[in-house]
């Protein structure tokens, strides 16, 4: 495990922001960290990166305790926590040079990471002239500046437009392909599903489920199926009366039904018995369904 949390707990006043959290992030994974607003994602990540100290428990990076060793444990870690903030009156390049000096990294890396994040042309401009998306890319540039083996990103696509989000996603994929382990928090389920190999879900500071995405999807007791059925409206009417059907709606001319795995055959039987034409049943479990079943409908994200 490249990154682990053990019984990690942090209380703000009376509120437990993170409660006895145990996570195991395997080397080489792209690990999504999902949770609704205020569920404790940032607090966890801040404890991982030595910004705040836990009340209990510890974070291990390559087996070394961040709490015992302090920042020394972060030698092979790059991080971007929430918004990327820099010295605005200095250029992006100068900001990165200063950070390279801190890390003891060769200054030639600065231009490399600027190019890599698409800022090669704008490196000499002051950060205050950057758009939100450019600042965020500079944030990623500083995170990969010193060739980290582990990248910890807290909602790196926050505040970006769809194009910007895609750029960040592509960059994350590339970095992952180079063998960098990536721990990335998000509240965007489909974003996580698109890029992650593993996922952990938390709610109110507590871990709800964790593991490789395929395993979670396979084991999910709530399955969404797309059904080609004709006619569609009466079918919805019929299914809505059944208590074992969690969700039933039309989407792109298909019937989308949420049922548990063992009820699929009952579902088909019911439709056929009522003289509906069923031409195809496609299981389409999404992370969203897993999330809703684990975290519950009340905590929409």
């Amino acid at each position: 495990m490249i990154l682990e949390t053990k019984n990690l707990t942090k209380t703000f006043g009376l509120r437990k922001a993170v409660n006895a959290l145990n996570l195991e992030i395997p080397n080489g994974s792209v690990y999504g960290f999902l949770g609704p607003n205020g569920s404790g994602k940032s607090t966890t990540i801040r404890m991982m990166t030595a910004l705040i100290s836990p009340d209990q428990g510890e974070v291990l990076i390559n087996g070394q305790s961040v709490q015992k060793l302090g920042n020394k444990a972060l030698l092979s870690v790059g991080a971007l926590i929430e918004r990327a903030d820099f010295h605005k009156h200095l250029s992006g390049e100068t900001n990165l040079k200063m950070l390279a000096r801190m890390d003891g990294t060769d200054e030639s890396r600065v231009q490399v990471v600027l190019n890599r994040t698409g800022l090669g042309e704008r490196g000499k401009d002051k950060v205050k002239t950057y758009s939100q998306g450019m600042k965020q890319r500079l944030g990623i540039a500083q995170a990969i500046l010193s060739n980290p083996k582990l990248l910890i990103l807290d909602e790196p696509t926050n505040g970006l437009d769809p194009q910007g989000m895609k750029e960040v996603r592509d960059l994350v994929r590339e970095l992952a392909a180079e063998g960098i382990t990536i721990f990335i928090s998000s509240h965007l389920l489909d974003e996580v599903q698109k890029i992650c190999s593993h996922v952990a879900m938390i709610s109110q500071g507590e871990l709800k489920t964790a593991g490789p995405i395929e395993v979670l999807l396979k084991n999910s007791d709530l399955l969404v199926t797309e059904i080609h059925v004709d006619p569609i409206a009466p079918a919805i009417k019929l299914l809505s009366t059944q208590s074992w059907i969690h969700r039933c709606e039309e989407k792109n001319g298909l019937l989308n039904v949420g049922v548990s795995l063992d009820k699929i055959s009952d579902l088909i039987q019911l439709l056929v018995q009522n003289n509906f034409q069923v031409s195809a049943v496609i299981p389409r479990t999404s992370l969203e369904d897993v999330f809703l079943s684990k975290v519950g409908e009340e905590s929409q994200i």
Binding site: T49, A50, L51, G70, N71, K72, A73, L74, L75, V77, A79, I81, E82, R83, A84, D85, F86, H87, K88, L99, M102, D103, G139, Q142, S146
Partner: peptide
């Protein structure tokens, strides 16, 4: 206040 610590204090150099 400027959020710079989120970038500098997450590096390997000691506080």
């Amino acid at each position: 206040a400027n959020g710079i610590f989120r970038i500098t204090l997450t590096r390997s150099v000691s506080r």
